[in-house]
Design a protein around this nucleic acid. Structure first.
Lengths: 264, 264
DNA sequence: CGAGGCCTTGAACGAAATCAAAGTCAGTGG
DNA sequence: CCACTGACTTTGATTTCGTTCAAGGCCTCG
């Protein structure tokens, strides 16, 4: 459909800028400006690459928000990640020389092109660059391992809670507020990412809102109690709460929300 | 506990052998035998590396079976993978220079040591080696993405079915029978890997056995109908089967197992 | 204003977890 | 040799979390 890129080619970045973006301590041996990487702009909804497309370039997100997805045998999307500033895209294409996932812009985006051939050639000359590559790929691997652990072991509430905390931290790193931000993705996309249905995501956000952990207004999220979100395992049954309070031998005093939330 | 390695140092491999093991088309530019990598043996139960331990070497499995695990805040293991011949271990340590997972031998193992420093240095001289590194890391990433997709979207039955098929294929690649093999891991470990409880794994295997997809005898698995396993989405409700047959307008004839299994 | 996405909420159902009890097997030591 | 221990597995009964199905509300944009 909208396969065409929004090539404007106005911007270029040097190696130092690329390393900074990736949070790689560039020894900055290359002050020369001859090593330039081109930028490309994508508009909301455009695809950066599709599944099966021949691989030749990696991308670094300079600004904007994206999602990467797998498409299963019957056309259902499985969201794999929500890349944003400083993330690398396309690494999954190296192995088979074809991208194995699809990347879509969730907002207008500015990406840096890293032609893979050029990159590896440069890596042999500039050691930081090579280390950067290994580091970024390893980091991505660790991120996915954490994701597997989360999908394998955590309750729906815990997944949503950690998702919010992770988002808040990313926004903080990017210099935005970690307390108040806008989700760039739909409930459906969040659900797919977390292995849940959109209804469960919606209900969970409402529940967090009700007990004061966050505030929700459509896609605007306010983080009220980041600590509780970080350690949350499961929510106290809202309808049964009275019964639970009666059962607990707490000398009649009301159980503090924090206690309930931290319950195994 | 048994932190000590079983260093025997009897075996060494050259670059060609390493590439073969990883299924990398080594251009075999290096026929010289000076590039040697040491082997190390581990016995069942021994740890290859632990979480947080300083990273300096990658491992390739030459023989044997292992598991890699994450340990959560309360000591619960989350199985991430079951590496076997040709798999690489330790890549997650590159990023932070500390392993982020733990690898344990499920059987006696023979691993090849790849000191990371040495490896990257060699990569600059031997291009196939560098390509191998990128390829293997990318492959691992793709594998984990598939895992995330599976955990996020598939039913318990489908997960177990695909797990068996994947195992069968690995055994086949390794030259063993893909029709009859022994599981090297417990039901608990399989469950952890698939995001299920051990009871669910056990029940699912029993169900597959009952309808003739596999045969199960403790850890010995016989694959009877690989195709059905590959495409299975959900099992027909065994107790409701009579009712379903009645509901279906199939002129009184019995529904073929294959039809039921392929049901969306 | 109306249409179409997106989101929320409720009710009922169902898949998998949890709880519980036996059964199997390998290894150990009397 | 055999009984005993402990880890692993199977199977059943029950519970619960999350899905599914359904209806209505809320924004945005033509």
């Amino acid at each position: 459909m909208e396969a065409g890129r929004q090539r404007q080619g106005r911007l270029w970045s040097n190696l130092k800028e690329v390393c900074d973006l990736l949070h790689i301590p560039a020894a900055c041996s290359v002050t020369t400006e001859e090593l330039l990487f081109q930028h490309v702009q994508f508009k909301t909804g455009q695809r950066i690459h599709t599944i099966g497309q021949p691989f030749d370039t990696l991308y670094i997100v300079n600004s904007g928000f994206l999602k990467t997805v797998l498409i299963d045998e019957f056309g259902n999307e499985q969201v794999l990640s929500f890349p944003m500033k400083g993330d690398m895209l396309g690494v999954d294409g190296i192995h088979t020389r074809h991208y194995s996932s699809e990347a879509v812009a969730l907002s207008d985006c500015d990406l840096i092109l890293l032609p893979f051939k050029k990159l590896t050639a440069l890596g042999r000359v500039h050691l930081e660059l090579e280390n950067m590559m290994y580091g970024v790929m390893s980091r991505e691997l660790v991120r996915e391992q954490a994701m597997i652990g989360m999908l394998g072991a955590l309750s729906a509430e815990a997944r949503v809670a950690r998702f919010l905390v992770a988002l808040a931290e990313r926004f903080s790193q990017m210099g935005y507020s970690s307390k108040l931000f806008n989700l760039r993705m739909t409930r459906h996309e969040i659900g797919s990412y977390l292995g849940l249905t959109l209804e469960t995501v919606s209900r969970t956000l409402s529940a967090f809102n009700e007990i004061g952990l966050i505030s929700v207004d459509q896609r605007t999220i306010g983080i009220k109690d980041a600590e509780a979100l970080k350690t949350l395992r499961r929510l106290p049954p809202s309808r049964t709460r009275a019964k639970q309070q009666a059962t607990a031998k707490t000398k009649g005093e009301t159980i503090a929300p924090a206690q309930l939330l931290a319950a195994l």
